[in-house]
Design a protein around this nucleic acid. Structure first.
Length: 547
RNA sequence: GGCCCGUUGGUCAAAGGGUUAAGACACCGCCCUUUCACGGCGGUAAUACGAGUUCGAAUCUCGUACGGGUCACCA
C-alpha cells in the first residue's frame, strides 16, 4: 500500500508539515515545577457542579505551582452545541472566582497557544492525521451506521468484544484502488486509527489519584476524524494537550476506560504523555443506590440553580474543597480568615472513590461561611442576589439600608456568631417581620403559662414601652412586669422554686416576642425592637392583645 | 457480557502491619441562654463476606458479593 499516495488523496490541501505546526507552539517558559492545566468543557449550555469540581482541581494545581490554567472549548460535536454556551462557561467561572490565564473568550482568544476552540483547529489536526496516514497508522473507513450496528449485534450474539478491531476492522486493509473509487463516488468516510495494540497486553500507568494501574492495551481502531473532518475527543485531546503543553490532565474517572487509547496515541505520535488526574465522580443518591451526577437527571445540580437558590459562591467552593481534600476542614478551623487559596491542596489526598453530594453538609458549610462575613458583605450579596431572583424582597431589603445593615449585625462577629441563614433565599423568611408588608404573625407560640395573662401583659407593656430605654432599663421593665403577674423575674429563682411562680421571666418576654416578631424564634428582641418603628410595635402589641 | 475502578458508622472521611478504629455533618440527651441561633459536654453508630500471609491485618494477597464507570462519527 502506498500510504504517501493515500495521504495525498485524503488530504490534498494539507501543505504544512507537523514540524511547522510544532514550531508555532514552543515550550512554555515557566518556573520549575509549574503545572499547566486546562478546563475543557463542551458548550452545551449547561454548567454542572461536577464541572466545577474538576475545575477547582485544575485551577489549584496550576496556580499553586505558578503555572497556567487555561480554557479550551471542546466544540467538536455540533449536535450538542448551544448558542451562548461559551458565554455561559465564561460567566460561570467568573462568578465562581476561577480565573483563566489564557484561552477562549466570548468571541476570540486570549493567549499564544490558540486557537482555543477545537472547531477552529481543523487544519492543525489534519496535518497530524495526514502524517499518521503516511506512516500507516490511519486509514479511511466507509462503514455506514447500519453496518456498524449490524456488526455490534453479531458481536453480542457471538459474545465477543464489541467494537472495530481485528477481523471486524473491515477497511483496515482496503486496497488503494477501492478507496479511490469510493471517494470518487462521493461516499462518506471517517479516518480511523490503525491500533498496534492487543488485548493480550497490559499497559502500566500511574495516575495521580488512582495510583498504579494495569490496564488492558487498546486494540480498537477508534475514529480519529469524523466524516465532517472534525476530530473525536480522543484525537483532539492528544494533539491539543501536546501542542498547548498541558502538564496535568484533570478529568473524571469515566475517562479511565479510554485512557489506553490516549496513551497509545501519545506513544505513536512520539509525544510525551501528560500526567493524569482521574478524579472520582461526584455521586448522588437515587432511590436506594448511588449514581454518577447526571446533567439530564439532576437539574438541581446545575450551577444556575445554585445561583437561584442563593447558595453563596464561597460556600460552594468551601464545600467542594472539603470533598476534594478531607483535611481542608481542619485547616479551615485553624485558619478561619485565610483565603481558600492559601490552603495547600494536594491531588494525593483526593478520594479514590466517588463521594455522595450532601446538601446538609453544604448547608452547614454555608452557615459557617456566612457567619464569618461582615454585615456589609452580607448586605451587598443579598442585595445582588435578591435583585436578580426576588425583586419584591429586594425592594424591601434595600428600602432602608441602615436598618437592614443594623439588623444583619445582630449577633454577628465575636466568638459565637449566630448562624441562622445558610442560603440567601432563606434571608426573606429570617427577617420578614421587619417589614409590615410581609408581617404574618403566628400567635400559636405563646407560652401556655401565660394563657391567663398574655392580654394584660401586652396591654400593660404598651404603656411602659419606651424606645429610648437602655437595654438594662428595657429588661428591668419586663422583669417588673413579670413580677406583677406572678412570674419569676430571674430564671434562677424560678428553677430554685418552680411552684412559687407561674413561670420564668422568659415566658413573659416570649409573649412580647411573639407579638412583635410574630414567631418564637428571632434574634435578640431588644436589638430588633430598637430597629423598628415605635408606632408599628405598639400596633403589633395591640393586635396581639386582641387576638 | 468484556474491560476497568471502588467498598471504614446514615453521609464525608482519618489511620500507609501493632490505636480503646480520629474528626466533621446529621440524629439524640444534658448544660448555657429572657426565645431562637451560637457555644460547651456527652451519646447512638463502621472496617461488605470468606480464605491466606504474619507473632500481629481496616491496612498485603486471592476469591465472592455488592456498587460505580465504560464499551458512539458524545465529550
Amino acid at each position: 500500500m502506498d500510504t504517501i499516495r493515500l495521504a495525498q488523496l485524503l488530504f490534498p490541501d494539507v501543505t504544512e508539515t507537523p514540524e511547522q505546526v510544532e514550531a508555532r507552539y514552543p515550550a512554555r517558559e515557566l518556573p520549575e515545577g509549574a503545572k499547566v492545566t486546562r478546563m475543557a468543557p463542551s458548550p452545551t449550555g449547561f454548567m454542572h457542579l461536577g464541572n466545577l469540581f474538576g475545575a477547582v482541581v485544575d485551577e489549584r494545581l496550576a496556580h499553586q505551582s505558578g503555572g497556567i490554567f487555561y480554557l479550551r472549548i471542546e466544540d467538536t460535536d455540533k449536535k450538542r452545541e448551544v448558542e451562548g454556551g461559551v458565554e455561559l462557561i465564561l460567566d460561570t467561572f467568573r462568578k465562581f472566582g476561577l480565573p483563566f490565564d489564557e484561552g477562549a473568550t466570548v468571541d476570540g482568544d486570549n493567549g499564544a497557544y490558540g486557537p482555543y476552540r477545537q472547531s477552529r483547529r481543523a487544519s492543525i489536526y489534519h496535518v497530524f492525521v495526514k502524517q499518521l496516514v503516511e506512516r500507516g497508522y490511519a486509514y479511511p473507513c466507509f462503514c455506514t451506521e447500519e453496518e456498524l450496528a449490524e456488526m455490534r449485534a453479531q458481536q453480542e450474539a457471538n459474545k465477543e468484544n464489541f467494537g472495530y478491531y481485528g477481523k471486524y476492522a473491515k477497511y483496515r486493509d482496503c486496497p488503494l484502488e477501492e478507496i479511490e473509487s469510493r471517494i470518487a463516488n462521493g461516499e462518506s468516510y471517517v479516518i480511523r486509527f490503525r491500533s498496534p495494540g492487543s488485548i493480550e497486553n497490559k499497559v502500566r500507568h500511574t495516575d495521580l489519584v488512582k495510583g498504579n494501574l494495569e490496564l488492558t492495551e487498546n486494540d480498537q481502531d477508534i475514529v480519529l476524524l469524523k466524516s465532517d473532518g472534525i476530530p473525536t475527543y480522543h484525537f483532539a485531546h492528544v494533539v491539543d494537550d501536546h501542542l498547548m503543553h498541558t502538564t496535568h490532565v484533570v478529568r473524571g474517572e469515566e475517562w479511565l476506560a479510554t485512557l489506553p487509547v490516549h496513551l497509545q496515541l501519545f506513544d505513536v505520535m512520539g509525544w510525551k504523555r501528560p500526567k493524569y488526574v482521574h478524579t472520582a465522580q461526584l455521586m448522588k443518591m437515587d432511590g436506594g443506590s448511588k449514581r454518577k451526577l447526571s446533567k439530564r437527571k439532576d437539574p438541581e445540580l446545575a450551577l444556575s440553580y445554585y445561583y437561584q437558590q442563593g447558595i453563596p459562591v464561597p460556600a460552594v467552593m468551601e464545600y467542594l474543597m472539603t470533598l476534594l481534600n478531607s483535611n481542608f476542614e481542619e485547616w479551615r478551623r485553624a485558619n478561619p480568615d485565610a483565603s481558600i487559596n492559601d490552603f495547600p491542596f494536594s491531588p494525593k489526598k483526593m478520594s479514590v472513590s466517588g463521594s455522595l453530594f450532601d446538601m446538609e453538609k453544604l448547608r452547614d458549610v454555608s452557615k459557617n461561611v456566612i457567619s464569618r462575613m461582615t454585615a456589609d458583605e452580607v448586605y451587598d450579596l443579598v442585595s445582588a442576589w435578591s435583585a436578580d431572583n426576588d425583586p419584591e424582597f429586594h425592594a424591601l431589603f434595600v428600602r432602608s439600608p441602615e436598618t437592614t445593615r443594623a439588623f444583619l449585625s445582630i449577633g454577628r462577629g465575636g466568638k459565637k456568631p449566630r448562624k441562622d441563614v445558610a442560603f440567601w433565599s432563606e434571608m426573606k423568611a429570617y427577617m420578614d417581620f421587619l417589614f409590615p408588608e410581609l408581617f404574618r404573625p403566628d400567635y400559636s407560640g405563646m407560652p401556655e403559662s401565660t394563657a391567663d395573662d398574655a392580654k394584660a401583659i401586652l396591654t400593660e407593656y404598651q404603656e411602659i414601652y419606651d424606645p429610648a430605654d437602655e437595654m438594662s432599663v428595657w429588661f428591668d421593665k419586663i422583669k417588673a412586669l413579670a413580677d406583677r403577674h406572678g412570674f419569676a423575674p430571674e430564671t434562677k429563682l424560678y428553677k430554685k422554686n418552680p411552684e412559687a411562680y407561674k413561670g420564668p421571666v422568659g415566658d413573659v418576654s416570649m409573649v412580647l416576642r411573639v407579638a412583635v416578631c410574630g414567631r418564637t424564634n428571632a434574634p435578640d428582641l431588644y436589638s430588633v425592637m430598637q430597629l423598628m418603628d415605635r408606632g408599628e410595635i405598639l400596633r403589633r402589641l395591640s393586635a396581639a392583645a386582641q387576638a
